[in-house]
Design a protein around this nucleic acid. Structure first.
Lengths: 129, 129
DNA sequence: CCTTGACCTTCCACTGACTGGAACCCTCAT
DNA sequence: ATGAGGGTTCCAGTCAGTGGAAGGTCAAGG
């Protein structure tokens, strides 16, 4: 398979696939003309990477997850720990965003949003209040 | 005031303050020795920027917000619109993270996390299931 | 007078995870 | 032969800073 085929079958942009090769996540063979030549296992890895990235794992996490996936003697505890740590980071981010959302939501609600200059949002940002 | 003073009074790292000057958000004067020389208005602007950034506004949004703040004839509707658009982006991010959280949470719960290799997390990522 | 330490300066490189674009090569159909 | 539609490499840019090197400035202490 050429890169266009794996791109459409994995859903990942060709640029991203080249980048993943660059950082050593996949190692496709090369045809005589220099084109990347992907096997089914490469496609499988790319799909794995796509799903892991969609769950928000970092590239380095993905590298670890792939290594665990390929290690038949892994302990599921190692996978679970990685996932739990990632889950905790997601929770932290949600909490941060939720705090922003609550504060900003209140400010937006208290702003008339008309043609006059008085604005509680700017008032808050400027430190008055 | 020197940069160290505004840094401790605004809570922003000196590096960040220099960066904000670099991109034109503030324009402190210089002393004879070449040191930046900050007025109270600069400190005020930096505090404004710090609060806007803490609410997740981008640097470009901050630039716009500062311009609106300094424009006595602004319409609060313009401020409100910017804030609402930002609020919508925050909501989108929260929804994305929440979806990740739910999926990953289920996977984590279904994983034994022991010394055996069987792992529903990896199974899901690999596309089996 | 010299030195030490805490400041300050500029400039360059790096972060994460790609993305855009230029310049060029390969293959097949017309 | 030419054009379209693949592919290749390499460089630069994104966002909002952060880290560090190399060096200038200033006040206090020996």
């Amino acid at each position: 398979m050429n890169i266009g085929d794996v791109s459409s079958r994995s859903g990942l942009p060709a640029k991203t696939i080249r980048y993943y090769e660059d950082i050593g996540l996949i190692k496709p063979h090369r045809s005589a003309n220099g084109y990347r030549c992907f096997a089914e296992t490469d496609l499988h890895k790319l799909a794995f990477l796509g799903r892991a990235r969609a769950l928000g794992f970092t590239i380095e996490d993905c590298r670890t997850l792939m290594a665990l996936y390929e290690d038949e003697s892994r302990a599921s505890a190692d996978v679970k720990q990685l996932a739990q740590e990632h889950l905790a980071k997601i929770e932290e981010k949600i909490a941060d965003l939720q705090a922003m959302h609550d504060t900003l939501g209140e400010l937006v609600n208290s702003c008339a949003g008309d043609s006059r200059p008085d604005c509680p949002i700017l008032k808050d940002l400027s430190g008055e209040g």
